[in-house]
Design a protein around this nucleic acid. Structure first.
Lengths: 122, 122
DNA sequence: GCCTTGTATTAGCATTCCCTTATATAAGCT
DNA sequence: AGCTTATATAAGGGAATGCTAATACAAGGC
């Protein structure tokens, strides 16, 4: 199925050990990692969710504060939080009626930090 | 509308000059930048498009090679390329029947490099 | 001129996303 | 117990996304 001129390797799906950073074709063989990245980016790729992650990147926040700062309905924020939590990006801690959210996955912290750096220069 | 305890600033939408990196609320006021970031991430957040960008990150590639390496239909790849191009991430150059694509926006190069780093460790 | 190759475009359909509205739950307060 | 506050969940519909299949287009080779 794969037909390319420079056949440096025969298979399109090399094992992990087979990766060579200079081979442009090696990378896309890491289907599982790419899939993960796509899911993560998809989850992050909404203005409200980016804002949430930005706020969480400086520490735990409660729903009310997120809602006030971002400026949409409480229900909507709760749903966005649900999406982020469903893919393991954030964690929640309940204290009485309040729920505090925080970033759980360190990779996401890295991602949001860079995104902020690149697009906001902050 | 905004009701938070530590009222370091009164408005939720400070001017650019007003940004302070330590203020968690300042950032989300940069609505335009956040919007841009969301659009960019949304465009990147598909396995095929991540693969395309990974391949392009090591230089110009033609459609045929992308199609072969990624393993979906030519039509499908062409549509994904269209999406990436529509938001200015990539550029195309036509040479006879071939079309060569390359990354145009340096921010995207940065993003894809980091994404690769984080999720693939490469 | 015709056939092949490389790429783009269109249409259609199934799926997913996102918002709004309404309601549920649970804890604190009086 | 009732009221209020904080959060979650469910239902609904409209929009966006993503795939396939079919077709268009443009350049080269014979």
């Amino acid at each position: 199925m794969i037909t390319r001129k420079s056949t440096k390797r025969k298979s399109i799906k090399p094992s992990s050990a087979d990766i060579d950073a200079t081979d442009i074709f090696a990378l896309i063989g890491r289907a599982e990692n790419i899939e993960q990245a796509a899911v993560a980016m998809q989850a992050m790729s909404h203005p409200a969710r980016i804002k949430i992650l930005c706020m969480l990147s400086s520490g735990e926040q409660m729903v009310q504060d997120l809602t006030d700062a971002i400026g949409t309905s409480q229900s909507n924020i709760s749903q966005h939080l649900g999406i982020l939590k469903a893919c393991g990006m954030i964690a929640s801690r309940k204290q009485a009626t309040r729920t505090y959210y925080s970033i759980e996955d360190p990779r996401i912290l890295k991602m949001i930090t860079l995104t902020r750096d690149i697009f906001c220069g902050v």
